[in-house]
Amino acid sequence: MRNFLVRRLRVAAGVLLGFLSAAVELVLTLASGLWLLATLGRSADERRGETPILAGARWWAGLQRRRMTLWYGQDPAGVAAPLTGMPALAYVSTRWTVGVLGGVVLLAALSGAAYASLLVWGWFWVDLDRWPVTMVISAFGGLFLLFLSMQGVHAVALMDEQLARHFLSPSDRMSMQRRIGELAESRAGVVQAVHDERRRIERDLHDGVQQRLVALGMLLGRARRAPDPGKSAELLRQAHEESQQALVELRDVAWRVYPAALDEGGLAAALESVAERAAIPVRLSCDLRDIPPPTAQAVAYFVAAEAVTNAVKHSGAAMVTVRADRTGALLRLCVEDDGRGGADPSGSGLLGLARRVAALDGTLTVASPAGGPTVITAELPCV
């Protein structure tokens, strides 16, 4: 009940501020009308650019959007800032009517509250011998008017939001252009991530497996040329150890490229392999009632593997916690370590993860204050 009353009072305060804003909007509307009349005969080239009237309307529309976000509890326009030029001017020129309506409704609410308060103080000031029935009827009528007015305040707030959404939301054409830009950016990020991954694989093969194979070849050559059977046997033993190490490193490279456990046991099994291979303890929690799509599982796995590797190498953490869960159409992966913090989201590793996640229209957030902890969260759509 208390939260309901607080919510209603916040909305009423927002409507009151909207009513006070109506005077400024009426002035802007008159000024914009005079400006349109003054520029009626000019060509589009002569009117090109943002005039003070348009700039003022855009600033005022942004101020109103922030008012609604603060008092109504949500962003009604659905955009980070008002659109430039005429859409913002059209919004400001129309919104003053809603502001005046909000003032009328609030005035009715005050009148209803005044009449309803007769039940409290009317017994002391009203002649009960002459006006008892009138006082009671007026008080209950005031309560009814107050109730209707509070519903009207909520309706005015909804009208306020819908008006902002109508004028300030991007058009279908602009939404399509923005979406095309996002897809082009994510595609470029995927290409760059694949390129970086190829370079990493080449570096691992060159610095690891290839060096092992070169050493193995040299040991076998020395064993063939050794005249002493004992020396030859010792070289063969070393060559056998090198071959075993080469196999281990080759498996590691293949595991980092794509783990077989992801196809055989799903994301939970792949995350268990990450925990087993880590050099520090990893606490794992995987709650997946519905199986996510293979692409989402693969991206979640790579995020977890890279985040755990970074924690082992750079954070000085003693414990890493990996949590994966699916809520509806969203797969959420959270990796938290108790290290020193200070992770750079623009670093090559985390930037590559962000590109992988963006390719699926997901989001990657990195919270790593100095002193820790570091929390990396990936949210992946599973539609």
Rank of each mutant, 00 (worst) to 15 (best):
S43K: 03
P369D: 05
I137H: 14
P369Q: 05
R173Q: 14
T327I: 12
D325G: 14
G41K: 07
G328M: 04
E336F: 10
A329E: 09
L17N: 02
G122H: 07
A184M: 12
A12Q: 11
A23S: 13
R65T: 00
A116D: 08
R7L: 07
A278H: 05
G221T: 14
D263H: 06
D228I: 01
V312Y: 01
P76I: 04
M176I: 14
D252H: 09
K313P: 04
L110N: 02
W125S: 11
R200N: 09
V105P: 01
A12D: 04
H314A: 08
L146Q: 05
G265E: 06
A270M: 05
G73T: 12
S186A: 09
L380R: 06
V190C: 09
Y72L: 08
P227I: 09
G73C: 08
V312D: 02
A239P: 04
S117W: 15
V257K: 12
V98T: 05
E50M: 10
R212F: 05
T327V: 04
D207H: 15
L216H: 00
P227M: 00
V120L: 10
T51H: 02
L331T: 07
A260D: 13
Q162A: 14
S346E: 15
R340Q: 12
G102D: 01
L288F: 01
V136K: 03
P345F: 05
L16R: 03
S93P: 03
V320P: 05
W35M: 05
